[in-house]
């Protein structure tokens, strides 16, 4: 029993369960899933579909955070990727030609790889603090996205492109499969090869890792490239979901939601150990919370406050120091040495 409690997924999963339980009592319809023209339809499916881009971005962010870095530019990369894809498609004579869709997707993915590499180079070779290095692209990226779209919302009428974000495969939204594929690749690469260990060691101590023969710069560069790729794919999903690219609002504040998902998932911002599955649960918690707020009709003025309180609760539950305070209060006997230990930690 104690072991389950200690497991890193215990708290994220119980928070998610608590949210779902709340919905079960408050609006039982939440769990109803029906068939609609050959695909499943219900709130849970919506959460997976709308949560897909966030999960993707958060997966990339997890690896960056594991190297003691942070990527603030993901929201902007989301916007750029969606914008360039929609622009390419809207320029085509026939928007439903498969070649055109593939080209646009490839251009968008290529561009996001490049932007990721730009971040990675600034951090690894340039030696700039990650928060500053990525802040550059966060600010400039929005501008680039607006340049690409010309300040307009680009609407595309391509059914094939819309399939990416709102189509369904085997009764489930296609985006879920994209997320699953990326997650499996990330898990295999980090858990079945030494790469995961490299990332963790670089996150703990870059110089020590370098001394022991790990190319720290290479590892750092690769996680930023991967993060850029994830954000780029998320941008494609988001823009295809509404069949339009909005340079201004697409992926706005995504970086913050993604960082939140990573932290809820149990990965420390101090680098080192990381939990990809925890991150996925974290992102699902955020999306479930959003959907719940819409469904129970929280007035828009206090929506953000409600969100903040839930997030605060989630973070406090997971904080060891927070529990330690309670534990010491409940305990009847206090040892001076123990007390010192607690103070030292906090």
């Amino acid at each position: 029993m104690g072991k389950i409690y200690k497991h890193h997924l215990f708290w994220p999963l119980s928070v998610l369960a608590a949210l779902l339980l709340f919905n079960l009592f408050y609006s039982p319809d939440f769990f109803s899933i029906t068939m609609h023209d050959g695909h499943l339809y219900g709130s849970l499916i919506d959460i997976l579909n709308f949560g897909a881009p966030l999960i993707l971005v958060a997966i990339g962010m997890t690896l960056v955070v594991a190297t003691k870095g942070i990527d603030l530019s993901v929201g902007s990369i989301v916007a750029i990727s969606g914008a360039i894809a929609c622009l390419t498609i809207s320029k085509g004579a026939d928007q439903n030609v498969m070649g055109l869709i593939l080209t646009s997707v490839l251009i968008a993915v290529g561009l996001s790889l490049f932007l990721g590499a730009w971040n990675g180079l600034l951090v690894s070779v340039g030696g700039i603090q990650p928060i500053i290095a990525t802040l550059i692209l966060m600010v400039a990226g929005r501008g680039i996205a607006q340049l690409v779209t010309g300040g307009q919302i680009i609407t595309v009428t391509s059914a094939k492109y819309a399939y990416l974000g709102s189509g369904s495969l085997a009764t489930l939204p296609f985006s879920i499969f994209v997320v699953a594929a990326v997650l499996v690749i990330a898990l295999l690469l980090t858990r079945k090869t030494a790469l995961g260990l490299f990332i963790e060691s670089v996150g703990c101590n870059p110089s020590a890792s370098l001394m022991s023969g790990i190319r720290a710069n290479g590892v750092i560069l690769s996680v930023y490239v991967f993060c850029g790729l994830c954000a780029g794919i998320a941008g494609l999903l988001l823009s295809s979901n509404v069949s339009s690219a909005d340079g201004n609002n697409a992926g706005l504040w995504y970086e913050l939601d993604a960082i939140l998902a990573v932290v809820i998932g149990g990965t420390s911002l101090n680098g080192g150990r990381f939990y990809l599955t925890g991150t996925v649960i974290g992102a699902l918690i955020i999306q479930t919370l959003t959907t719940t707020i819409y469904m129970i009709g929280v007035p828009p003025e206090i929506t953000l406050v409600v969100k903040a309180f839930v997030v605060l609760a989630v973070c406090l539950i997971q904080s060891d120091s927070f529990w330690a305070v309670f534990a010491s209060r409940w305990k009847t006997r206090h040892y001076p040495g123990e007390k010192e230990g607690i103070h030292h930690v906090s």
């Binding site: 319809d29 709130s43 919506d46 509404v242 909005d246 959003t290 819409y294 469904m295």
Partner: peptide, 18 residues
């Protein structure tokens, strides 16, 4: 819905379920 398409779609989907 923040005057945007993406939010409009997301909120409407929740409305339709609720």
């Amino acid at each position: 819905g923040d005057f945007t398409r993406a939010k409009g779609k997301e909120v409407m989907q929740a409305f339709l379920k609720a």
